[in-house]
Design a protein around this nucleic acid. Structure first.
Lengths: 97, 97
DNA sequence: TTTCTATTTGGCTAAATTACAAAATAGAAT
DNA sequence: ATTCTATTTTGTAATTTAGCCAAATAGAAA
């Protein structure tokens, strides 16, 4: 496999990795239509806030979500809506749902 | 987060995990339009055949590819074409390509 | 049946990921 | 300036993952 192509697949894999966690998928679905702070998301999921902060950081780094600061809070929103399309398609094919 | 919903996200995350590896993404792109055996795929990527076998197994288990046996060989093909759509969409948004 | 060839499985090690707790920052409110 | 509140960072332990090698299967070919 040539180097340039290999690099492409490596980069794409990073996106999938960033999405490959239940909490992060929950975040994506949840910030689809409402902006939420780290603390609010933490309470919804029921994990340590430091863990949530890291999950958000992973999604942010890969530009899957974007955060806006308002006063003390950072509100997140989904930046790649097509993630949701893919998920519903994949689930249809795989689970016949 | 309620148990049923949590389970849904856990299952979806499994799909993303299965896709989250450069070799597995290469496989998906490669078996999109031609059927290939384990050995052929191994040679294209340049890894140990046992490693390739395991990658294929992961994709098979999650019903992302399907394998058909012909004589000694197992030929694989892509079962969820929408993966490719998502990848091109995600790359557009994220890399501005 | 014996031999070949393709594929899978098991063992092992190195690297990556996840979670929590505690400490550090950042900035708003008092 | 001090205190609160939200968020991030650091440290660490537990779990998972990826890779190679060697051994085991499966079945076609001889």
């Amino acid at each position: 496999m040539n180097k340039a192509i290999e690099k492409e697949y490596l980069e794409s894999a990073e996106i999938f990795k960033a999405l490959a966690h239940p909490t992060r998928l929950f975040i994506i679905h949840t910030v689809k239509d409402k902006k939420l702070s780290v603390k609010e998301l933490t309470q919804l999921v029921g994990i340590d806030i430091s863990t949530m902060s890291k999950h958000l950081d992973i999604l942010k780094k890969h530009k899957i979500i974007k955060g806006e600061k308002h006063k003390n809070f950072i509100y997140y929103r989904l930046a790649i809506p097509c993630v949701l399309d893919f998920m519903s398609c994949a689930m249809k094919v795989i689970n016949k749902k």
